[in-house]
Amino acid sequence: MSRRRIGGWYRLAVIVLKPALLLTTKRNWQGAGNLPVTGGVITVTNHISYVDPFTFGHFVYERGRLPRFLAKESVFRLPLLGRLVRGAGQIPVYRETNDAGAAYSAAVVAVRAGECVSFYPEGTLTRDPGQWPMRGRTGAVRVALETGAPLVPIAQWGAQEILPAYSKRFHLVPRHTVWVSAGPPVDLSRFAGQPVTVAVLDEATGQMMNELTALLEEIRGETAPPQRYDPRAGGTTWYGNPNPKQPKQQKRKRSGR
């Protein structure tokens, strides 16, 4: 592994998290050679658990890269975690606001500076009933087309067994296997030189999501549904828990009979 410049906050995260991951997970990693060890690169991965940024980050770190995630802005306001992610140089995303473009600009600058920028193209935990990747957002493709940097799809599975989506209860025993598989960079050459229209971005993003899903099919040994899940078409919100816990009903008092 090549030597990397690593700041104090990033070093602290590695010191704390790497031993914990080694202790609590088993790892089945494939395709690490598809992730370049130097130069600007963009990675995309599916989102199945609040734990998977750490299991995914572990894979990327062991390849010799320091992933810079695009994370929702609310994380940066948390007392301890917020200070950690800010200090480690992660990129805040201001969802559906006038500041939303700032994350895109920061990602472009980072990639051009030779860094590894990691996207969750779904933008949230998957709402697909089978936990397959949903319809993707176009941000990663836009950065790839603007910078010319490789766009590497990396599928992951198993983190949802440790912490299910939207759950607060960890399942650490028995140790769960985390599968991570990196594929070859997405070939976007046919889009090079074209005007970056909505149609071009949608087509390129669809290709990216197809390749990411194909990697996950190999890991799971299953076939994804032919129609990719779209939260809006499915009648659910794009962000937040789609199945909030229903308030408990008050128990009826028994009659005196």
Rank of each mutant, 00 (worst) to 15 (best):
I6S: 06
W9H: 01
L12R: 02
L12N: 03
I15D: 08
L21G: 03
K26L: 07
R27Q: 00
Q30N: 10
V37Y: 02
T38F: 04
G40R: 11
T43H: 14
T43M: 14
T43A: 15
N46E: 03
V51D: 03
F56L: 14
G57F: 13
H58E: 13
H58C: 11
F59Y: 13
V60S: 00
Y61G: 00
R65W: 01
L66W: 06
F69P: 05
S74D: 15
S74E: 15
F76V: 11
F76M: 09
P92K: 07
R95C: 02
E96A: 13
D99F: 14
A102V: 10
A103P: 04
S105N: 01
A106L: 11
A107E: 06
V108K: 01
V108Y: 01
V111N: 01
V117I: 12
V117A: 14
F119H: 11
G123L: 07
T124Y: 11
T126F: 02
R127E: 10
D128H: 13
Q131P: 06
P133A: 04
A140N: 08
A140W: 07
A144H: 01
T147V: 03
G148K: 06
L151P: 00
L151C: 00
V152S: 02
I162M: 09
P164E: 14
A165I: 08
A165L: 04
Y166R: 12
R169S: 12
H171I: 02
V173T: 06
H176Y: 03
H176M: 04
V180W: 04
A182M: 08
P185W: 07
L188N: 11
A192W: 09
G193S: 14
P195K: 15
V196P: 12
V196N: 12
V198Q: 08
A199W: 05
E203Y: 03
E211D: 12
A214Y: 06
L215I: 11
T223F: 05
P226K: 14
Q227P: 02
Q227R: 09
R228I: 13
A233Q: 05
A233E: 10
A233H: 00
G234L: 01
G235S: 15
P242I: 02
K245T: 13
Q249H: 08
S255I: 09
R257N: 13
